[in-house]
Write a protein that binds this DNA or RNA. Structure first.
Lengths: 331, 331
DNA sequence: TTGTATGCGTTATCAA
DNA sequence: TTGATAACGCATACAA
């Protein structure tokens, strides 16, 4: 592989000059420039970005931590990051933490030792203090998480509003007896969605009933169990709002197993607008979580702060949107 | 950020010694080792992997090219790669090509200039010659693609067998009138799956009929259209085999729209075992494409050839498996 | 077992 | 507008 040195020899100029035409950041006469370009071409020269990084103290890469590489949410966030980064000629180094604290920390350490110019982290297994300390070493933006000391660098979804919109969609179709299958309470997203649900109820003078609440864990199985538990209780309902789409799917399966005709006998609304939501039957009405946009925005914060791209507007909180499909029947 | 030099000063030893304890590849007395370790700890030293790479001509990273970051197929392949790589203490640099030749080539160029130790490529937009020439520069393995000159470094699925198994599953449930909705003919996977379908038919003395064939493009919409086209023709059928799960979903939606009761009135089998397959109603019987395993194996080839890990068995072609769910009724 | 010296392929600071 | 030359942080052959 040809080096800048060989290029300089062939072109009959100095190392410095070759470097200048590569980065075209200094004046070079048209004549020498073409000479150099020609030499590069002739040698099939490709810059060694490792060497560039060492010398310039810039890797033009941003490190990303996600839980898994598969899965809709992460996929779209990564897409948002990667697309935006590519437009800026930067690139992405991805690591996974599998929602395990030790793995997440070691992934972060790795990204730092790899000299990423900045970090985008999706994590809930690592504590606030650690994140704050990291952010003092290297520009860091957090997606789907809020840490007060880093508020400017946190991107999140207004989950409360999302929960509100979901339940409101049910109410507007005439439903009053609405059950709720929640995600784990210790997750803020999950908690906020429930709060939104309750606000929608209250605003329409519907009293919230404990009988109509089931606590799941965001996995499909608990949606299934949840529906069965809820129907075992005396309080009847005509609709269910679910903390996410997986559980909505589970509830749909359980309901169908009990012989219900969907959506006629039971209306359901999900949350996340997961990839499979439109493949469900009936196609699931749900809340879009703006995953792609959040990834894009995380990148924008970095482009602005680290790579000094101006005229970029930052938005830290995203508004969820209702995606209307066919899983809600008019009552 | 502390450097190896500062560590050596604090520990009162030479640069080389510090380097030795980092890589523990040479004898260092226990006494000096602890001295060095202590100094590292005190300074919060983290090795600069960029500098390591430049000096050692090894980046411990493998470059990966996929079409998109979201989507089940790519997700699982990347998972397979990343998991295997992490166990070996190597890491992954991911780029996307969006199925566009120019973008794919520039992504590959990028990975090379980034001095990856090896490449794992998922591409169908770039020609064989280009891939062969790349593979002479840097160890390259191809997933889901076959190039004769690089046969040892190609990982693929036995799509013909998959197509065979899918249709055979239908036949074994008593179906004889089986329609087929195919992917684009120019894609080898798609073509091979069809050939497998035809073999299953032939083996059971069922004549293949053009009336029962529809050519789609692997997207859900063409599954929908396909079903409508097929039912418009005079030849009747009780089952459909689809080139992939998306089209199967489309066909299911179309059938249901025509008032059919699934799977009683129509049996369907898909291909790929896409993430949403188990969320469909009825849950889709399909063919698993071993995406995760193919990603893992691609990595293994590199671990063996590039990183010299021995005792790794290589398998270039994967056997698809039938995943039985509820979308096939007994006739 | 430890230290010295050189090189990896660039960028960047000076001079010229 | 160009050219020497010193970093960048580490690995490694060679000496000691």
């Amino acid at each position: 592989m040809a080096t800048i040195y060989e290029v300089s020899e062939l072109a009959g100029v100095s190392l410095a000059t070759v470097s200048r035409v590569m980065n075209n950041n200094a004046k070079v006469s048209e004549k020498t420039r073409t000479k150099v370009l020609q030499a590069m071409d002739e040698l099939g020269y490709r810059p060694n970005s490792i060497a560039q990084s060492l010398a310039s103290n810039r890797t033009n890469s941003v490190g990303v931590l996600v839980s898994e590489l598969h899965g809709g949410f992460f996929g779209f966030i990564m897409d948002g990051i990667e697309n935006e980064l590519r437009l800026a000629n930067k690139h992405i180094i991805i690591t996974t933490g599998h929602s395990d604290e030790a793995q997440e920390k070691s992934a972060i350490e790795f990204l730092i030792s790899r000299k990423c110019d900045a970090l985008i982290l999706l994590t809930d297994s690592v504590d606030d203090d650690y994140l704050v300390s990291i952010s003092k070493t290297i520009p860091t933006v957090l997606v789907n998480r809020k840490v007060d000391e880093m508020a400017q660098n946190c991107i999140s979804l207004n989950n409360e509003l999302g929960g509100y919109l979901a339940t409101k969609a049910l109410i507007e179709k005439g439903h009053k007896d609405i059950a709720y299958i929640s995600g784990p309470d210790w997750k803020v997203d999950s908690h906020d969605r429930l709060v939104g649900h309750q606000r929608a109820l209250a605003e329409h003078d519907i009293t919230y009933q404990n009988d109509l609440f089931y606590q799941g864990d965001f996995n499909e199985g608990t949606g299934f169990e949840g529906y069965n538990e809820l129907t075992a209780a005396p309080t009847k309902f005509t609709a269910i709002a679910c903390g996410n789409d997986e559980m909505a799917s589970g509830a749909m399966k359980a309901a169908r197993k009990q012989g219900l005709n969907l959506p006629k006998d039971l209306s359901i609304v999900g949350f996340d607008n997961n990839m499979f939501a439109s493949y469900l039957y009936p196609e699931l009405t749900t809340i879009d979580n703006s995953a792609y946009l959040m990834g894009k925005m995380a990148t924008d914060i970095i482009l602005k702060n680290v790579y000094k791209q101006d005229d970029i507007a930052i938005q830290n909180v995203f508004e969820p949107k209702l995606i209307t499909r066919n899983s809600i029947a008019t009552k």
